[in-house]
Design a protein around this nucleic acid. Sequence first.
DNA 1: AAATAACATGAATGAAATTCATAATAAACA
DNA 2: TGTTTATTATGAATTTCATTCATGTTATTT
Lengths: 306, 306
Amino acid sequence: MYLEIRHLRSIQAINTHKKLSAAADALCVTQSALSHQIKNLEETFNAELFFRKSRPLKLTPAGESLLKLANEIIPLVLDAEKELKQISLGTSGRLHIAIECHSCFEWLIPSMDNFKIDWPEVSLDLSFGFAFDPFPALLDGKLDLVVSSDPVDIDGIAFLPLFDFKMQLAVPLGHKFIEKGFVVPEDLEDETLITYPVDRERLDIYRGFLDPAGVTPKESRTAEMTIMMIQLVNSNCGIASLPSWAIHEYIERNRVAAVDLGKGGYWGTLYAAIREKDLQTPYMNSFVDIAKNTSLGLLFGVRDKK
Amino acid sequence: MYLEIRHLRSIQAINTHKKLSAAADALCVTQSALSHQIKNLEETFNAELFFRKSRPLKLTPAGESLLKLANEIIPLVLDAEKELKQISLGTSGRLHIAIECHSCFEWLIPSMDNFKIDWPEVSLDLSFGFAFDPFPALLDGKLDLVVSSDPVDIDGIAFLPLFDFKMQLAVPLGHKFIEKGFVVPEDLEDETLITYPVDRERLDIYRGFLDPAGVTPKESRTAEMTIMMIQLVNSNCGIASLPSWAIHEYIERNRVAAVDLGKGGYWGTLYAAIREKDLQTPYMNSFVDIAKNTSLGLLFGVRDKK
DNA sequence: AAATAACATGAATGAAATTCATAATAAACA
DNA sequence: TGTTTATTATGAATTTCATTCATGTTATTT
């Protein structure tokens, strides 16, 4: 037989009640059950656990060492059980977020700050620049939420819309597009397009604007960060497609100008991808709500998903 | 269902092997058993323990918290089991000794020192001046060994002889008994007898010498410690009955003289009383042996039990 | 897309813990 | 010291629980 937590509980109960029968009551078993249990323990360890010829019962050294173990272990077990209960109620847990969109920091950091206030027990983490496909990692539990503007149909993954945002083209000050106010895909055939260094099919400008029209820019280059792209645009090295909120502050500082993609502008949607299982997890839903509200209140050129 | 150590072992095994089947092998159960077990756990805690859609297996936060618990608890359990094994083999344990005879320190302390060398794992303790009857305490496990010169027939208690010792009468220098060399009970009728403050029937001088002859000293008084008794004798305040070994050093320092009780002297026997159950305990027997040898080599006026 | 490896599941089995009834023992009391 | 009372121990019957077996399902590899 193996030592189990049940036995430690018994030892503790016997030690506190000093009577088998009372201890058995406290443990919600019969006195007989407890007697048998102790006897088995004694046989497996080849040692008496308490002195039988005395009442109130007194533990032997062997019994004492089990009691010591019980006193060490049982509080730990109770703590762990409490933690598990929190996890199952969804008040505690883990939220590892990944973003592909580098400009998302702008709304994500404030959203996370707001989230922390309501859900202090949830451990937050943020990865960006996932070289690999984030969705398998999401399924595997390496990630818990992926921010994406490109919902794909993967079994076990749900895409919750966060907000719609206007994609714009950052162009140098005085660029010819500015007076038109917007561009059509064909306008870009002679331009150098600057994008984030991710797969083409993940870039809204291609997926939603250029590819449907069968247009490819003359040249393309990449930059890691928004500020770098703005720099390049400002230096007449190309034009960049960015969410309008990301361009906004640079327009105000007169570094670049912006034009819409198509008449009325091209709107994309940002989604939070989570495991379908987590659709029931309260803090997950709460995070999405908080991110929505935070972004809508903070960003320029965003609107609630229609 | 309740969380048990078995489950923690399973979580650990799953975490290290990253495969249910391999973990099951390591735990010597079938893969099916382990799968069922985990399923039960998940149902009781209402939380998944690892991500099923990924291989190698990865723990969820709930699984992690159980793993943490396992890593904390299992070493403690192993330690306790090792300790219990030591106790059952008799290489570890407890030896709480009680003495009534205050002069016994002289041989008991060196004996305990010698014992510690051979049995470092045994926890030693010494109580003296047990106001109450020590034998029930011995049966109850409050004590493990009682040094007594008065073997009584109690079920469950065994008396192991340590050594024979000569009882003598410490008398003031120049006392009239000295030239006789020994006294008969009647000689004490006109004396003040100094004894340890314990029940009369526990004192060898009464039990073995005076009571059989129906003699009671004129006066009696008590002293706690040997040195006090010697002081009183030296000051002509009475005569004291003590083991010859206890008087010996004071004779050499010319503080008192000693005379035998009866012609040839009165010899008592000192016993170690232990629980009969402990007759099989190796360190118990070893202690008695060590005490015997230490005393015989150290004390004056003792001999091996005939 | 097929083959393979791994996990999940349901029913049957088996082992182990519990209960019931009662005997044995210790403690309290007279 | 015996008698009563309270408590623990024991054996057999029972129930509960974990495990296995056989097989289905799902993921991964080729």
